[in-house]
Amino acid sequence: MIHTIAFYIFAAMVIASGALVIMARNPVHSVLWLILAFFNAAGLMVLVGAEFIAMLLVIVYVGAVAVLFLFVVMMLEIDFAEMRAGFVKYFPIGVLLAIVLVAEMILGIGAYSAGALHLGTADGTGAPLIGESNIESIGALLYGRYLFLFESAGLVLLVAMIGAIVLTHRERGDVRGHQNINKQVRRRPDDATVNTRPEVGKGIEL
């Protein structure tokens, strides 16, 4: 009962906030709706018993990725008129993407209902359950059966990260405002202050 109600609340919220992401006029509002969508998707994950994935979704997407998103969007001055100008031009591509996604969904659901796939269910049957909790099962699978795939996924991410750094890193010729932290930490009051008693009418030399 509560499960069903919670599912419909979460699902409706995901769809509604997903729609509002593209409909909001203000990009900051869009990002905030996106965050709400992530959060409700995490709720759906909890409902199917994948609490580990749900937590990862919140930690990685809501806690890190979306914060950076928000950070960038908040700082940028975005021209709405310019953004809307390309709408007609990009509309066919958008439709194409939507068709591809729907086709994938139909294929996936079709294959599942035909019995070709063995997906896990909420009560844990169907999935190769090794440990008791979801973390143990995922860990045992990722670091056991799918070790090489997992490691190569890590390599792909590493390459992507290095690529991003190389692309955005710019060598600046003038080294300005470079701080020597060691020097700052070593500095003591005796080095920085002098106590003098100058005679009347005479200045001091520092």
């Binding site: 905030l32 965050i35 609490e51 580990f52 937590m55 809501v62 806690g63 914060v67 928000l70 973390i135």
Partner: peptide, 25 residues
């Protein structure tokens, strides 16, 4: 008493920043 307790704490504490960021903006 959930078995992803510590991850839950990490997830929730990472949400704390939103109050500050949203209020600032």
């Amino acid at each position: 008493d959930i078995n992803v307790g510590l991850l839950y704490v990490l997830a929730i504490s990472s949400l704390g920043v939103y109050g500050v960021v949203i209020s600032g903006w």
